[in-house]
Design a protein around this nucleic acid. Structure first.
Lengths: 133, 133
DNA sequence: CGGAATCCTCGAAGATACTG
DNA sequence: CAGTATCTTCGAGGATTCCG
């Protein structure tokens, strides 16, 4: 099995992982690996959401982290930010097409972890028991 | 679109994301999000590897981080560790079936980032240009 | 060779306070 | 309401040293 390596000469396989250290994979890892992005994306998958709405939908997130998370998503073109010049102010966030495609990856993540949740927990118990008798 | 929510009563959809705060998804996020696991898994996808071999195959990784990364993978039942009582010592690592399945997720990650690499870089430039004229 | 133990740095994330 | 600005904490990860 080969995860990544495409022969540069004539390959049609999907990826070469080590193209000049990571070729952008780190960006995705950083988004998917941080504490809040996945949660925010999941809520945005439900449609347009306002800032305070997201704050309520993602329990435990601080105002600061919600702002940072949304800004990063916006910067990467995964989310649009629409300011309505009303009073009080009203800001709406929505997934872009690319952002929606990200939810497919998130779903793959969730599916995988659910599929192997049991075996991992078991392996972990076994390992810990071996180490701490 | 709904990424996660399965009605507990009779749903057959794949996942409920907020089952008691994350239901194991964080574990996978932590592995996939950290700095080295993906690289190590990719190399192990090529077959059995010795410690020093991995050290050479994953450029930049420290001895400590390679050890930690492998231990975590072993603890989760994704990698087996085989010590040959030779001199000098020889330790071999290999993906378990679950570990091999993890490579499918890694591949999805790599594929996604390659597919959207361009649009993300572009969005990022546009965003930065808007903010710093 | 394949680690374990220790020390240190630095950035992610939390808490709090202020503002257009 | 939807932020920005500061300060602080905490842990991942790096460097180094020692060991069976």
């Amino acid at each position: 099995m080969s995860v990544g390596h495409t022969e540069v000469t004539g390959g049609d396989a999907p990826a070469e992982l080590s193209c000049a250290q990571d070729c952008g994979v780190r960006d995705v890892q950083d988004r998917l690996g941080d504490k809040w992005t996945v949660h925010v994306v999941v809520e945005l998958a439900g449609g347009v959401r306002r800032f305070g709405e997201l704050r309520r939908l993602v329990p435990g997130i601080s105002q600061r982290m919600l702002t940072l998370t949304l800004r990063r998503l916006e910067r990467d073109g995964l989310v649009t930010r629409t300011v309505h010049a009303t009073v009080p102010p009203q800001v709406e966030y929505e997934l872009t097409p690319t952002g929606h495609d990200l939810t497919r990856l998130v779903r793959a993540l969730v599916d995988w972890s659910l599929a192997h949740r049991g075996s991992i927990a078991e392996a972990r118990r076994a390992y810990d028991d071996r180490r701490r008798p």
